[in-house]
Structures are given as C-alpha cells and as structure tokens.
Simulated scan of single mutants.
Amino acid sequence: MPSSALHVARTGLEAQDARMRVIANNLANVGTTGFKRDRANFATLAYQDARVAGAQSSNETTYATGLNLGTGVGIQSTTRIETQGTLETTGNTLDLALDGDGYFQVQLPGGQLGYTRAGNFTRSSEGQLVTTQGYIVQPPITIPEGTTSISISDDGTVSASVAGQTDAAQLGQITVASFANPGGLQAAADNFMLETGASGQAQIGIAGENGRGHIKQGMLEGSNVNIVEELVDMIETQRAYEINSKMISAVDEMLRNANQTL
C-alpha cells in the first residue's frame, strides 16, 4: 500500500509540474499579439478494482458499493481558450486586428499555409504585404510605389491612393479563414497555427460573413491572458505541489519505519 501511495503522489507532482508549465507559458506571452491562453486538462489514471459494485457478497446479496483504488492523475490535453483579446489602437496603417472569429492566412516557407491572429504586418522591398518574418499574407497584396495612403475596410478590401492618380486603386481583398474546430489547430512558432485533421479544412471567406470577424485597420488584438487569474492558478498549483511533496515524504517515512520494524 505505501508504494502504491507513493506512485499516486508522484503522478500528482508530474501533473502539477505540467500545469505550472502551461501557466508559465501563458504569463510569458501576456504581451504577445493575438496570443490565446492555454488550459491544462487532467484525467484520472486506471483504477484498481479490489471489489466491484454489484458483485455477490453472499448467496442472496450483492455489494452496494465497490472498492476502487485510484492510481493517480495524468495530463490529458491542453485546451486553447479562443476568447477575444482586447483591441489596441496603434495608428499603424498596416496593423490589422480581427474583431470576431477567424484567422489571417500566411504562406510559410515550403508553401504550407499558416494561420494567425497577429496582424502586425508590414511592406516588403517588393511592395508585398508580409509578416515581420517576411512571409507573404494570402491572398497576396502588392502595394505600388508612390502610394501615399492605404485604406483597408472591415470586409478586407484594400485600396490605395497613389501619387499622380486621382482615383484610389483597389489592390485586392484580404480574406479570413475559419475552422469547424479551431481548438484542433496545431500551435507553431511565431504566432502561427497549422491545420490538422481535428481542426477540419480551412473555410475561406470574406471578413464579416458567416460568423467571421471584421478586420480593423490600425489596431492589434492583444493577448487574452488575464494576469490575476493566472496568478491565482499558480498559487493553487504551488499548494497542490507542496501537498504531493509532503505525501511523498510521509510515505517514505512509513516505508522506513516498516523496514526498521521488520
């Protein structure tokens, strides 16, 4: 029994360590544009059924309750919380935020598409709308030389005033990707998400239609991390870690006494 209790306590330590890593990552990204906080999900490990409820207790009766001994806890998954972050006005013409659901599309090296809520875009030397890493926003938007101002409407239509031209030139339209299960997207580096079988295929459409968010020019979406909530979770995790550590010490003491006695 003591060795079984020791195993349970150790699984508790491992689970709380994983939870602390999730909390630490959330706090580390509190200032990351478009970041969505994660939550650790746990599940009980297999139970040892010493006595099954409903089994015969005599020729005429059955046990009303069983005797089930748990073997600990393990981390089951992490869930990304997709709530909207605060929209912050930057005044930068090429900063874009999504007010609502959806993702911007970006072509990653190798041709794979990445999806992001971070709309801190810029203009490349060739005039293309790109991320800070130089990845091209999809569909491609090329800003001509001599552009004096750029206007991006809520539906993603990009127009530019060019020196020497009286009418504004329409450069294209930024579309928005949505997913049946955005929680199934795979997190990657540099604020990008990747499509998976769990997320379903990207559904590309116009911003503001079919549940997609509107595009807001001159704004960025902040992280949805709530510092107070994360600190409360951190304190709770620390307490749980301490309790499991004390349990290990207590079980070690029981085993030491048993060995000395025997």
Rank of each mutant, 00 (worst) to 15 (best):
M1K: 03
P2S: 14
P2T: 11
S3M: 11
A5K: 01
A5L: 10
A9H: 04
A9K: 01
T11I: 03
T11L: 01
G12L: 09
E14I: 11
E14C: 03
A15P: 04
A18L: 07
R19P: 02
V22M: 01
V22Y: 06
A24K: 03
A28Q: 02
N29H: 05
V30D: 04
V30A: 01
T32D: 01
T33I: 15
G34M: 11
K36A: 07
D38P: 01
D38E: 15
R39M: 13
R39C: 02
A40E: 06
F42C: 05
Y47T: 14
Q48L: 05
V52A: 13
G54V: 05
G54P: 05
S58E: 06
E60I: 13
T62E: 06
L67I: 13
I75C: 00
I75A: 05
R80P: 07
R80W: 06
I81K: 03
T83L: 10
Q84T: 13
G85M: 04
T86S: 08
L87Q: 09
L87M: 11
T93V: 12
L94D: 03
L98S: 03
D99R: 11
G100L: 10
G100F: 10
D101N: 15
Q107G: 03
Q107S: 10
G111K: 09
G111W: 12
G114F: 12
T116Q: 05
T122K: 00
R123Q: 15
G127F: 10
Q128P: 03
V130P: 04
T132S: 12
Q133N: 08
I136K: 06
V137I: 08
P139A: 09
P140N: 02
P140F: 03
I141E: 04
I143N: 01
I143F: 02
P144V: 05
E145P: 08
G146E: 09
G146C: 09
T147R: 00
T148I: 08
I150H: 02
S153Y: 13
D155R: 09
D155N: 15
G156M: 11
A160W: 03
V162L: 07
V162Y: 03
G164Q: 02
G164S: 09
Q165C: 02
Q165M: 10
A168Y: 00
A169N: 11
A169H: 08
Q170W: 00
Q170P: 01
L171R: 07
G172A: 11
G172R: 06
A177K: 05
A177Y: 07
S178L: 01
S178G: 12
P182I: 01
G184K: 06
A188M: 14
A189D: 14
D190A: 08
D190G: 00
N191V: 06
F192K: 00
L194D: 06
E195M: 07
T196F: 12
A198K: 14
S199K: 07
G200V: 12
G200Y: 13
Q201Y: 10
A207R: 10
N210G: 01
R212Y: 13
G213N: 10
H214Y: 15
K216L: 15
K216R: 15
G218I: 02
M219D: 06
E230M: 00
T237I: 05
A240N: 14
N244H: 09
K246M: 11
K246F: 12
K246C: 06
M247L: 13
S249L: 15
S249R: 14
S249G: 09
D252G: 14
M254C: 03
L255K: 05
L255I: 15
A258P: 05
N259W: 04
Q260G: 11
Q260N: 13
T261G: 00
L262N: 12
